[in-house]
Simulated assay, not measured.
Amino acid sequence: MTEKQAAVVRLRQVRKVYGTGPAAVTALDGVTIDFPAGSFTAVMGPSGSGKSTLLQMAAGLDHPTAGEVSIGGVRLAELSETRLTRFRRDRLGFVFQSFNLLPFLDAELNVALPLLLAGRRPGRAAVTAALAAVGLADRLRHRPAELSGGQQQRVALARALVTGPDVLFADEPTGALDSATGRQVLALLRKAADEHGQTIVLVTHDPVAAGYADRVVFLRDGRVVGDLVDPTPVAVADRMTALEAGPGGVGEAGPMRAGEAESR
């Protein structure tokens, strides 16, 4: 296994149950999956399939009911809450559909915030470079209200990347954007994997967004039911249609390449 193929994020038999007794809801049901270093993986599935729960477990944002999650060989369950918080801050990046920018800070300070919270003096060159990488070098002094939605999401992406995270988790980051702006954000995520070797885990409902990934993992009812390598939007849409049709769809067939899916 090459360095690029080595798994940086591992989930083993992860279960997540919310509530107890008759009201208990199983969001994840024994998920085992690897996310290779330097890869770009999209996670898809029907509504309620467990996509966002999978991301929360993989990123250490919530604790599984059972099973094990490790990142870079570190078992998250063995970390105290303080150490886990520090680990997420130092090693991971997050981008969500809501931009979560502080409205009273300009773009430069919003990007520098993770470094400030870590007690590190943010070098202006690093912050400027992060904003330049997302095409916003000329927006340093603009506050969120002075930026478009797409620009705000790119500031959020620069903030996630400024610490040089090993893994970047993105939950529907283009959901609030128009298609053209969404493509810009997805291209930046693709670049982070290709040029900087960062591992990208993207939760999305959009086949076009999934088409930027190396692989799409499909969930249904809290379980992994297949994946698609080298996806195209058409192949992803066909797979999702089958999944939403219920048990027995093509999602049960396991991994295949996009070309194979389209030829069937």
Rank of each mutant, 00 (worst) to 15 (best):
L115D: 00
R121I: 00
G248L: 09
R10G: 01
P233S: 09
G251T: 10
P114T: 03
V208S: 11
A37E: 10
D90G: 02
L188N: 08
I33D: 05
P255N: 12
E172S: 03
A210Y: 06
V17W: 06
K16I: 10
G30L: 08
A42T: 05
V74T: 15
E146N: 09
N110G: 03
L136C: 01
E244G: 13
M240K: 03
F87C: 14
R86E: 14
T163H: 04
A253T: 14
E146W: 01
D238H: 11
V134T: 13
R12V: 11
V250L: 14
L54V: 08
S49C: 10
L102I: 15
A58P: 01
N110Q: 01
A137F: 00
T41L: 08
I33A: 14
V250D: 15
L84G: 04
Q56S: 14
A58K: 03
R143P: 01
L168K: 00
L11F: 07
V225K: 05
L84H: 03
P103M: 11
M256T: 14
Q152C: 12
G67Y: 12
A6N: 07
S52P: 06
P173W: 00
V155F: 06
R239D: 12
R141A: 15
A132F: 02
G123M: 02
I71D: 02
D178C: 10
V167Y: 04
T199C: 13
T82K: 14
G246C: 01
E81L: 10
P64Q: 12
E252C: 13
T232P: 07
L228M: 09
T163Q: 09
A145C: 09
H63W: 07
R88W: 04
G119A: 10
V217E: 07
R120Q: 15
E172W: 02
V69L: 08
L116Y: 04
